[in-house]
Amino acid sequence: MKTIAYFPGCAMKDQARPDEAGTLHALALLGYEVTEIPRWNCCGTVYSLAQDDLMRHVGPVRNLVRVQGMGEGRVLTLCAMCYGTLARSARFVAEPERLARINAFLDTEDDFRGGIEVVHLLTLLRDEVGYEKLAAQVKRTLDGLKVGTYYGCVLLRPRLFAVDDPDRPEVMERVVEALGGTPVAFPERTECCGAYLTVGRTDIVGDRVGRILRSARGGGAEVVVTTCPLCQFNLDERRPAGAPTLPVLYLGQLLAWAMGLDEPAVAALVSKEPATGRPVSTGV
């Protein structure tokens, strides 16, 4: 058993519950004891790109202080956006003067000493578990299901924090393969869905989503998979009229299926099971 500290973030306790449930069960089968960090707070979801905006790093850093308090040297996230804010803030405040100022802000907390590594699920599966060990745990193969792998922005940009090659990522494709699926690396898989513009600019987000889904279907995808709750929401809920109707799932839901789970939280996935025994209807 390996232990790992886990930062869920808001979405995993809300609309992304099937993702969390599926992923945590899969990680248990893969030999991980996952411990949620105590008293975690919102990561802020979007990383501040300004040089003098130290206040917006307090949220992420507070979470890193909790990880430090657990005696852990790294923290796992499932959400792409949490990964972005935590990983980037950890580096931004590592500079001594900023570290001193942020610790003055935190005041009642333990001082952040830096050096906490932020790990996204995909990196863990690739670099530590390995695709072979993942494949060995598959109880119910995806049976060649054509899975469009949607990365979006935060997993791949900026380059310094990319979980894979920003131009030619393959980690999600390899995970799909390990689960018995056929990955569809469609051209729009690395282009933005519109993110938080969904609050008020549904016109723009709808256009983007239509384009992304047409690209996925054009590549032959029967389902689209993502690790970002905001991408999942946009691709599913902001789908414009006439756009392809293929299901948009979390990676955790695919893991759950492949690892033979029937938990209530993944019921939404299982209930879509068509007669062919595949995890989702093609819906197109």
Binding site: G9, C10, A11, D14, Q15, C42, G44, T45, V46, S48, R56, C79, M81, A195, Y196, L197, T198, V199, G200, T202, P229, L230, F233, E237
Partner: peptide, 17 residues
């Protein structure tokens, strides 16, 4: 900005930031 509903908190937090 008038939020279009439904709107998840991950988007609302991002937008207000």
């Amino acid at each position: 900005v008038t939020p279009d509903r439904p709107c998840p908190q991950i988007a609302l937090v991002g937008a207000y930031r």
